[in-house]
Design a protein around this nucleic acid. Sequence first.
DNA 1: ATCATTACTATCCAAATAGATAGTGACTAT
DNA 2: ATAGTCACTATCTATTTGGATAGTAATGAT
Lengths: 124, 124
Amino acid sequence: MPDFIYEHKVYYNPVEFAMHFIGGTWKMPILWRLNQRTMRYGEIRKALPHITDKMLSSQLKELEKHELITRKVYAEVPPRVEYSITKKGKDVIPVIEAIRNYGLKKMKEKGLKEGGKPKLSPGK
Amino acid sequence: MPDFIYEHKVYYNPVEFAMHFIGGTWKMPILWRLNQRTMRYGEIRKALPHITDKMLSSQLKELEKHELITRKVYAEVPPRVEYSITKKGKDVIPVIEAIRNYGLKKMKEKGLKEGGKPKLSPGK
DNA sequence: ATCATTACTATCCAAATAGATAGTGACTAT
DNA sequence: ATAGTCACTATCTATTTGGATAGTAATGAT
């Protein structure tokens, strides 16, 4: 597999290239939610309790740039903006499912067996 | 999905937890190769032309710690060390396949259509 | 004696990613 | 007048990740 150059950056293999679009802590969780339903900015933030505004808006912007989601603004006050997944965005759902299944399996594995002390944090 | 605590770190969702084991630039490429066959340290390095010794040995160490690969040392000089994928390691192959397929699809998409100027870099 | 081989460690540094905190604009309700 | 709502933006700082470079140990070959 020869190197692949895209937007001035070298990618060494397809995995790395894929992660350019869906990598980072928040992109997959956001897409996962938007695959369930269209949501407003504030709803996504509530659904992802630990995300900061900076991360949320920057990640939404990148997802929109790559056409994995769309942004629809309503001319209202206070503002209303809705985000939806696109056809291209749906392409990544199988990827998220695979990673999610693996993560869930690991959680059970680690949560029920070994010494890493599994814990569900108290309700904040 | 409540938070999950593992080795003093909080994970917000299964995707993030999964990425703790298989995230980073090199872990999936290494597992992918070792799934094809057992390899010596130097062979892996050749197969992944851009990796540095530091990255390779640190990633191998983490993969071994998580029991995704095994390390076998032969008492020879010069040293010989062989790495193999484990049963647990094979659990992540479907994940890699999903991400790889997505990456390949994106490469074709970007490589054949849009303005990002697709290029195969010349031989190094 | 010196070099080559192999699988590593040890430092140091740069870049990328993430997080905390505060502020903005336009209108509505009190 | 003031506070609240919503979807952001701007700074600043901290943490994580990745990479360059050099060095080590044990032995056999020249």
